[in-house]
């Protein structure tokens, strides 16, 4: 329970160590997430950034114990949370953590709510299972949550069904569900990607506000670097299933070190600079069954050298690590 467990400021709330999640593709197991490690501090927002398919969502699903079976499974690593390793927990123990101590919100608000159950019931459900609340008590708490996520006239809409809500409102309901049990960690998987830009800003503001109010830590998954700048404290950049760079958000934007991060930042269109064309990164992400043995970015990298044929470690000073042979020595470039 939250009150019984005291988090020391220095000790991470969540610590992912060497996580590898593999999928079976035509008989062979391939790592979709490879050797991913990061710590999440109390009340910190860590952005997990990368292209679609780079393993960001799978990292979050691994933490939740929701890797789709039997095609996928966690093959190595530890996920330390509140003194236990989530990877080794049994189903029931993991279920008691999900939606209670660690929650997740998803990208698709339109399809993430059950069409045949009322919105109020879906919010109250988490409380029934994790807090052993009775129907009326859970309903009251759920209504309070719907008000907290600013659903207009929540009491009147409590018994409405998801199809009667707009995308933005549904995502608010999802947030209410995720926060119902006041989790320690919130995993937000592209929660604003499917929304209109104005709604996006509202939902981001709501998330930031509730994070402060609840004292949560958050892993915010996105491919949108603009959103990262607005919400994150630290950023972990992922490429082809690996974390390639971790740094504080300002540090990363000012002094990116990994060539992939650099190219990624350069590919953001900007209105304050004249550009004749949009920057793109040459080549394509290697497929899961055909990963290079060495640095996974090497085939597309402009700085490629002979030593890149060996897999580089994540190295550097504690506040800024990078997985690159060329850039891990002697500081970053501007």
């Amino acid at each position: 329970m939250a009150t019984a467990f005291k988090v020391e400021p220095a000790e991470p709330v969540l610590s992912v160590q060497g996580l590898t999640t593999s999928f079976r593709v035509s008989g062979d197991w391939h790592a979709a997430v490879r050797d991913v490690s990061f710590d999440l501090a109390h009340n910190e927002t860590l952005a997990l950034v990368g292209e679609s398919g780079c393993g960001k969502s799978m990292t979050a699903l691994s933490i939740m114990g929701l890797v789709p079976k039997p095609a996928g499974r966690i093959t190595a690593g530890r996920i330390m949370f509140e003194g236990s390793d989530l990877v080794s927990l049994d189903r029931e123990a993991m279920r008691r953590i999900r939606g209670n101590r660690i929650s997740m919100i998803f990208q698709e608000p339109m399809t993430s709510l059950n069409p045949v159950l009322t919105v109020g019931f879906q919010v109250a459900e988490a409380l029934r299972y994790h807090r052993a609340m009775g129907g009326a008590e859970a309903d009251r708490a759920a209504l309070d949550l719907l008000e907290q996520v600013k659903i207009p006239s929540a009491a009147r809409r409590f018994k409405d069904y998801p199809h009667q809500f707009s995308g933005g409102m549904r995502q608010r309901v999802m947030i209410a569900i995720a926060l119902a049990c006041r989790p320690q960690v919130l995993l937000a998987d592209e929660p604003t990607t499917a929304l209109d830009v104005t709604i996006q800003a509202e939902v981001l503001a709501l998330l930031a506000e509730l994070k402060q109010a609840y004292g949560m830590s958050m892993v915010f998954i996105t491919h949108n670097l603009g959103v990262v700048a607005a919400i994150a404290d630290r950023v972990a950049v992922m490429y082809a299933g690996e974390i390639v760079e971790v740094a504080a958000v300002r540090e990363l934007f000012r002094r990116p070190r990994h060539p992939y991060t650099e190219l990624l930042l350069r590919s953001i269109p900007r209105v304050d600079r004249h550009v004749s064309h949009l920057e793109t990164i040459e080549g394509q992400v290697p497929s899961i069954a055909a990963m290079p043995a060495g640095c996974r970015f090497a085939p597309r990298c402009p700085l490629r050298e002979a030593r890149c044929d060996a897999p580089p470690p994540l190295a550097g000073a504690a506040h800024h690590v990078v997985r690159c042979w060329v850039r891990s020595e002697g500081g970053g470039h501007g």
């Binding site: 999900r98 939606g99 998803f106 993430s112 459900e125 299972y129 994790h130 999802m174």
Partner: peptide
């Protein structure tokens, strides 16, 4: 997706199958 949501909020398997 909504079944994943149900699991993500810690609904037991039994209720995921019968209710959701």
């Amino acid at each position: 997706d909504y079944i994943r949501t149900a699991r993500a909020k810690g609904v037991p398997d039994r209720a995921v199958i019968w209710r959701h």
